[in-house]
Simulated scan of single mutants.
Amino acid sequence: MVFARKHLAECGSTNTEALAHLRDGGGPLLVSASRQTAGRGRLGRAWLTEQAGDDAALTFSIALPLPAALDLSGLSLAVGCTVADVLDPAGRRIQLKWPNDLFLDGAKLGGILIETVPLPADQRGVVIGIGLNLRPLPEGADREAFASGHAALQTLDPAATAAATLDRLAPALRGMLADFETLGFAPWQAAFARRDLAGGQRVRVGEQAGTARGVSERGELLLETAAGLLPCSGGELSLRLEKPL
């Protein structure tokens, strides 16, 4: 699988650019931007970065046509595992919060947004958007705007730049996508378990409370409740860690 590369100085959202590319009949593409003016996350949330300019953050999207019948369950988790393994191969500092967030030392480092668009000939366009904070917030920045905290890759790798980080991630993500198309999420189940931020903790998924017990072979969160083990799919659900009393 070969991706064309495109870099923009500024755009509204790399996901929007990637979706338009697929609608116009384009093939596999990796599009990045130095600055997004309308970045977005799951559930319609804005993706916030307090700083402008190169190397404050890395924002990019991968667009590719895939068979419409392919089960995309767990894709965001496989992406998260791949990103974490590239950036933190020792596996000590980056954790994953189901279904789409990356945390560094307990604060949010970045997120993943997957969107799809129908295509002709039994195909479906898939766009994987990834945003990572690179530079720490400056002194005096409004940290209350970041409900899950703000972590920066440069605290893990002081030399990290947007271009260098993207060059590290691109081949690993390309290989992951080729494997996912034939194998699904199952090969990444153990990798996710090693980095599971919520594993064994009391959480709330939508309106349902319980204890997180890892994920299934399809990437469903396994929620232990009084009624038994409940599998929860990503979709429009989000997970909140419940603070101890």
Rank of each mutant, 00 (worst) to 15 (best):
L102Q: 07
A145H: 09
E139L: 14
G111V: 13
P118R: 08
L134G: 04
Q123M: 13
I130K: 04
D105H: 02
V127L: 11
A107L: 05
L109C: 11
E139M: 12
V127W: 08
H150W: 07
A147N: 05
G129S: 09
I128M: 12
G140V: 11
A145W: 02
L96E: 05
L119V: 06
D85I: 01
G110A: 05
D85W: 00
G131R: 09
V127C: 12
V86K: 01
N133P: 08
H150R: 12
Q123T: 09
I112E: 10
V86G: 04
A145V: 06
G131L: 08
T116M: 12
G125N: 10
G91V: 03
L87I: 02
G110M: 03
V86I: 06
A121R: 13
G149W: 01
P120R: 03
V126L: 11
D88N: 01
P118V: 08
V117A: 07
S148E: 15
E139T: 13
L113V: 05
G131A: 10
A107H: 06
I114F: 05
A107Y: 00
P138I: 11
D105T: 05
I114H: 07
D101L: 08
I112W: 08
R92P: 00
D85V: 01
V117W: 02
L96Y: 04
V126T: 14
G140K: 13
L96W: 04
L109K: 13
G131C: 10
G140H: 12
G125A: 12
L96C: 05
G106C: 02
T116F: 08
G111N: 13
A121I: 01
N133K: 07
A151C: 03
D85H: 03
G91P: 05
D88Y: 00
I94M: 02
A107F: 00
I112H: 09
I128F: 07
A141E: 03
G149Q: 04
G106R: 02
A141I: 03
G140F: 13
A147G: 07
A107K: 11
Q95S: 15
R93L: 02
I94R: 01
G140A: 12
D105A: 15
R143C: 13
P89H: 03
P89A: 03
L109R: 14
E115K: 14
F146E: 02
A90S: 07
L137A: 14
I114Y: 07
G131N: 10
G149H: 01
D105W: 00
E139P: 14
P136A: 06
N133D: 09
G91N: 02
R124Q: 15
W98A: 09
L109D: 14
I128C: 14
D101V: 05
V127P: 09
P89Q: 04
S148H: 15
L87P: 01
A141D: 05
G106M: 01
I112V: 13
A151K: 01
K108L: 03
G129F: 10
G131Q: 10
E139Y: 10
F103R: 07
N133S: 08
R135N: 01
Q123P: 04
G140Q: 12
V127A: 11
A107D: 08
V86D: 02
Q95R: 15
R93C: 03
